[in-house]
Design a protein around this nucleic acid. Structure first.
Lengths: 241, 241
DNA sequence: CAGTGGTCTAGACCACGTT
DNA sequence: ACGTGGTCTAGACCACTGC
C-alpha cells in the first residue's frame, strides 16, 4: 500500500480502464466482489469509486451497477480541470520556453491585497512572463504572489516552473483554485508579444489559487491568442439535486 | 430528514455559514461534537463535510480542524460550475427572453453522432435560440439533442427552459458535463444577432451533457459577446497528490 | 501528549433495477 | 424476489497539529 487503501484501489481500477481490462460501457465487478478481491470492506470500495466517479471515469446506477463512462479512456490523458502550471502541462510533449518580462517586489494595490487576503503593507512579487510552446508565443502570464507565503523566488525559478518550486522546494500543498474565464480584445502587450492584430481575440483566465490550508498564494491573469488553446472543464454532480 | 442524513447536515451547515453563525476563517465544531449534535456517527459527519469541501466552502486540516473558507460566503450565491440553463441562471434576477431562430428534426452529421453516441440514422433536434437578458442580446445557443432520449419538444418548451422540461416533465436526472471554452472571432450570426463588430470577440462554450446513467443528451455551442458574461470555475482536489 | 481529523471494518438496513 | 448500490453505525487505530 502506497498511500491509502481506497486511493490505491482507485488507481488500480483506473489502470484497468486505461489498459482496456474494463472497456467503455462495461459494468465493473460488483462492490461485494471487489471487496473480496482487494481484501477490504465494501465501504472502502465505495470510497475508491467516489474518486472515479468524481473524475468522470464511471457512472453509478443504484440497483444496477457501476459502468465505465464512454469518456473513460479519452479522459485519462485529457488535461481537464488542471491548475498546474504551463510547464507541467506540456511536459514531455513540447518544448516550453519562458521569457521573464518583469520581475520585481512591490506593495500590492487594493484589489490585489483583497484577493490575496493581505495587508497593503505586505510586499508581493509582481511577475510578468511570456511562454513559448515549440517556439510559438503561447501566453502572457501576470502573477502576483505574497512574499510571506512564497519565499525565495529567483530569476532561475521563473525560467522553470513556479508550481514545481512551490511543491518540491517549499513543500507546500496546493488546494483549490477559482477561475474566471473570459474573452477580451487584445491590449498592447498582446499585440506586441502574442502577435495579435486588432481582430484577434484573447482568451483570459484570471485565477486565485489557494494552498490546502486555505491561504491564497497566487492571483494571476493569463492571456492566450484565441487560436492557441482552449479550456477543458468537467462538471460532476456531488449531491443529488 | 428530507433526503439523506449527510446531505441534510451539509445543508444545515451551509445555512449556518450563510447566515453568519460560522464566519469565514472560523473553525467548525469538531466532528465528535457535530456527531453528538446531529445524533449520528462521525462517518456520517465526514460525508457531510465531503460535500462542503468539494464545493469549496471549507478547508480541512488533519490534526487541526475544518475551517470556513474565506470564499465561503461569497461562494454561496456565485453561479460556479453551473451547467443549468440560461433561464434558471437568471431566475428572479433578470428578465429572460428567448427567440427561436431554428427548430427542426434531421439526421446528425458524423461529429454530432459521435459526440452523442448515436447511429447516424437516429434523428436529432437541431435548435438555434437567441437569448435576451433585460432586452439585451445575451447569447446564441445551438443545441443538438437525440430525439430518442429527449422526447416531445415543442416550440412552447423552447421558449421556456429545456432543462426544466427534462427534469420535471421527462423526470430525467442530469449527470455530468464536459465543456470546452474558447475565444473566437465573430461569425455572421454573431454580427447579426449579438451586434458584434469585427473587433468584438466572442466567448464560446461547447459542451456535451450527460444524464446520470451516462447517456449524452445535448451537444451544444453557446456564444456570448465578450462583454456579456464570463465563466466561473472552481477546482477542488479530490485525492492527495 | 492530548485532541483533531483520516482511514478502515463488519454488519445492517434501505432504495432501486432487473427479471 | 433477488441482486445491485446507497446509507448508516459504533468502534478502532493511525497521522497530524499544536500546546
Amino acid at each position: 500500500m502506497v498511500i491509502s487503501k481506497y486511493i490505491d484501489i482507485a488507481n488500480i481500477v483506473k489502470q484497468r480502464i486505461s489498459n482496456g481490462t474494463y472497456q467503455a460501457g462495461d459494468a465493473l465487478p460488483g462492490q461485494k466482489a471487489m471487496a473480496e478481491e482487494f481484501q477490504t470492506s465494501r465501504v472502502t470500495i465505495q470510497r475508491a469509486l467516489d474518486i472515479l466517479s468524481s473524475s468522470g471515469l464511471i457512472n453509478r446506477r443504484q440497483g444496477s451497477g457501476a459502468y465505465v463512462s464512454q469518456f473513460g479512456a479519452s479522459m485519462l490523458d485529457a488535461n481537464i480541470n488542471q491548475f498546474i502550471g504551463t510547464t507541467k502541462l506540456f511536459k514531455d510533449k513540447a518544448k516550453v520556453d519562458t521569457k521573464t518580462l518583469k520581475f520585481l517586489i512591490r506593495l500590492p494595490d487594493e484589489e490585489e491585497a483583497n484577493k490575496l487576503l493581505l495587508a497593503i503593507s505586505t510586499p508581493v512579487y509582481d511577475i510578468l512572463r511570456l511562454r513559448y510552446i515549440n517556439d510559438i508565443p503561447y501566453s502572457i502570464e501576470h502573477s502576483i504572489m505574497p512574499t510571506t507565503v512564497i519565499t525565495g523566488i529567483t530569476e532561475k525559478v521563473l525560467e522553470q516552473s513556479i508550481y514545481e518550486y512551490i511543491q518540491t522546494k517549499l513543500k507546500l500543498k496546493i488546494g483549490s483554485a477559482f477561475r474566471i474565464i473570459s474573452a477580451d480584445k487584445p491590449n498592447n502587450l498582446d499585440k506586441k508579444y502574442l502577435d495579435c492584430t486588432d481582430t484577434d481575440p484573447v482568451l483570459q483566465i484570471s485565477q486565485v489559487v489557494y494552498l490546502r490550508d486555505g491561504a491564497p498564494f497566487e492571483y494571476s491573469h493569463t492571456r492566450h491568442r484565441y487560436d492557441q488553446g482552449s479550456i477543458y472543464v468537467s462538471h460532476q454532480p456531488f449531491s443529488k439535486d
